[in-house]
């Protein structure tokens, strides 16, 4: 294996995932380009139905090939994951890519002991003996911050709290020291204090293993606290991408700006919150062309939008879809530089 620690090891090129609905295919993810490096946390943020989870399960190869059509290329350490057969994929899943799920209760088999569920991943990817596996289970449970590993290993999922279960899921995901960890809303089902602990555990593990993490979440706070880089998704597309500081300090795309503005903030305690007009289009009603966010900012003239919105690098790898961000303003604000909008 070639150690390319700082280089990107996951390169998602032009990936689209389409679901079959009543015999027709509709894109849930369209033309996504992303890369992940070692030692970084890339957050994919967006609201429900934006395609962020579909992208995750696409990377993991968890879609039923008869119900989905996937195109593009997912270059993972030199192999295109999308060209792998089931057998080849099974050598990657669990071993080189670990996944953490949202609901830690349903993600664990209710009838199997914790120990067996963690060992299972090692059975398929290592040549460890039962004894070695057991030792590793205890080591992992310690690593994810479980206080009494011997006892916990013997328990069943329903005997553990939500935070403990999520730690177990993390232990499973990192058991074989994968290079990539995909965490799909890992803290959504948890209390804030537990959430903070779980995010700490994730970060510590990433540092120890030099893994890259894809953190999928709808929670901007979680993103702001943990992500190195951020990709904002809307209606199946990435609309803005950059470092955490670029996204939070200088958001450009109208959607990113609207989302940030609709958060309850310390300084708008008693004001009404900003509301984005309209609704996310359903898969079947996704506009075939044009800017997908345009219908939700109708006060921005059509001329401001590109007909085929592309990603533009506005400096330092800060990418924004469509040129409309230049002309965007909130309806309750006076447009900056009003008067020379012909620019």
């Amino acid at each position: 294996m070639v150690e390319t620690n700082t280089d990107q090891f996951l390169n998602i090129k032009n990936v689209s995932t389409a679901f079959k609905i009543n015999g027709q295919y509709y894109d849930a993810v369209s033309n996504v380009n992303l890369e992940v490096k070692h030692d970084e946390i890339l957050a994919i943020v967006g609201e429900s139905g934006c395609g962020k989870s579909t992208l995750a399960t696409t990377i993991m190869g968890l879609h039923d090939p008869e119900e989905t059509k996937i195109s593009g290329e997912i270059d993972f350490e030199g192999t295109d994951l999308l060209k792998l057969d089931e057998k080849g994929y099974n050598k990657v899943r669990g071993a080189k890519i670990g996944m953490i799920f949202q609901d830690p209760l349903s993600a664990l088999n209710p009838l199997k002991r914790i120990e067996d569920q963690i060992q299972e991943v090692m059975v398929y990817h290592t040549k460890m003996t039962e004894k070695e596996r057991h030792a590793r289970v205890i080591e992992l449970l310690n690593q994810v911050g479980i206080e009494d590993p011997d006892r916990t290993a013997h328990q069943f999922p329903h005997q553990l709290s939500g935070g403990m279960r999520q730690r177990i899921i993390i232990a499973i995901a990192i058991a074989c020291k994968p290079d990539l960890i995909i965490a799909d809303e890992p803290t959504t089902a948890l209390d804030v204090t537990i959430q903070a602990q779980i995010l700490d555990v994730l970060r510590d593990i990433q540092r120890e293993n030099h893994a890259g993490i894809i953190l999928i979440t709808h929670d901007l706070g979680v993103v702001a606290e943990t992500a190195d880089r951020v990709a904002v998704m809307y209606a199946g597309q990435i609309v803005e991408q950059g470092t955490a500081s670029q996204i939070f300090n200088e958001p450009k795309h109208p959607y990113t700006r609207s989302l940030l503005r609709s958060m309850p903030q310390r300084d708008n305690e008693s004001d009404d919150l900003y509301v984005i007009q309209g609704m996310v289009p359903s898969l079947q009603k996704m506009p075939k062309q044009g800017d997908r966010f345009a219908p939700r900012i109708p006060w921005i003239p059509a001329s401001a939008h590109e007909t085929e919105p592309k990603m533009h690098d506005i400096g330092d790898n800060h990418l924004v879809r469509c040129t409309c961000y230049k002309d965007f303003y909130f309806p309750d604000q006076v447009k900056e530089g009003a008067g020379h909008e012909s620019n």
Binding site: G94, L111, V121, I172
Partner: peptide, 26 residues
């Protein structure tokens, strides 16, 4: 279609083993 089967799949367990160890048993 349960989440724990999805977990097993993401561990790299082949489908026929998932049937044996998880689905049928449960």
């Amino acid at each position: 279609h349960s989440d724990y089967v999805r977990t097993a799949r993401s561990k790299g367990v082949p489908m026929k083993d998932i049937y044996r160890h998880h689905i049928f048993r449960n």
